[in-house]
Amino acid sequence: IGVEQPTISLLRLNGSVVEELAHTVDVNTDGTIVRDRHSLPVHRTATGDGTVPDHSADLSGIAAQPLAQQHGALAQIDEAISVVRWILTRKRPGGRLGTEWGIGISAPDVVEAGEECHIE
């Protein structure tokens, strides 16, 4: 699921003009809209992948994998491809991530505050 991208989530008809709204409402488990103590819908900033709102992509019964990416990038980035591969086949990608370019870091798991440590 693409997240943290501004995403139009609601439309409002204002006379003959359709307005895009950058907020959304949440839904209770019974399908009703979440309301405040005055019975007004509770608004929150709408996010998603820039095209699909996050709450529309979140399917019940399926664990979501949020990625801060836009709609077009989701199908192309390594992280999303790895997630889909794992869900469908339970096979891990070959090799370790980052080894193609020799990038990595080696550091102790725990270091006392103020103590020097060696990092490669």
Rank of each mutant, 00 (worst) to 15 (best):
I1G: 04
I1W: 00
V3M: 08
E4Y: 02
Q5G: 00
T7M: 02
S9H: 03
S9V: 00
L10K: 09
L11T: 05
L13I: 15
N14R: 12
N14Q: 09
S16Y: 12
S16L: 12
S16F: 14
V17Y: 14
V18Y: 07
V18R: 05
E19D: 15
E19L: 14
L21N: 03
V27H: 11
N28H: 09
N28P: 02
D30V: 11
T32D: 03
T32Q: 06
R35D: 03
H38F: 14
S39H: 10
V42Q: 14
R44P: 00
T45H: 01
G48F: 01
G48N: 01
D49W: 06
G50M: 02
T51G: 01
T51Q: 07
P53A: 09
P53R: 00
D54V: 13
H55K: 11
S56V: 08
A57V: 01
A57W: 04
D58T: 15
S60K: 08
G61Q: 07
A63H: 06
A64E: 15
Q65S: 06
A68P: 11
A68W: 09
H71M: 05
H71V: 04
H71K: 02
G72F: 11
G72I: 02
A73I: 02
A73Y: 05
L74D: 02
L74Q: 01
Q76Y: 05
I77P: 00
E79Q: 14
A80W: 08
A80N: 11
I81K: 15
I81Y: 04
I81E: 08
S82P: 00
V83R: 05
I87Y: 12
L88D: 08
L88N: 10
T89S: 12
T89N: 08
T89K: 03
T89H: 04
R90P: 00
K91A: 06
P93N: 08
R96P: 00
G98D: 13
T99P: 00
W101A: 10
I103D: 08
I105Q: 11
I105N: 10
A107P: 03
D109L: 14
V110L: 10
V111G: 04
V111N: 05
A113R: 14
A113S: 13
G114R: 12
E116L: 06
C117G: 04
I119M: 08
E120H: 10
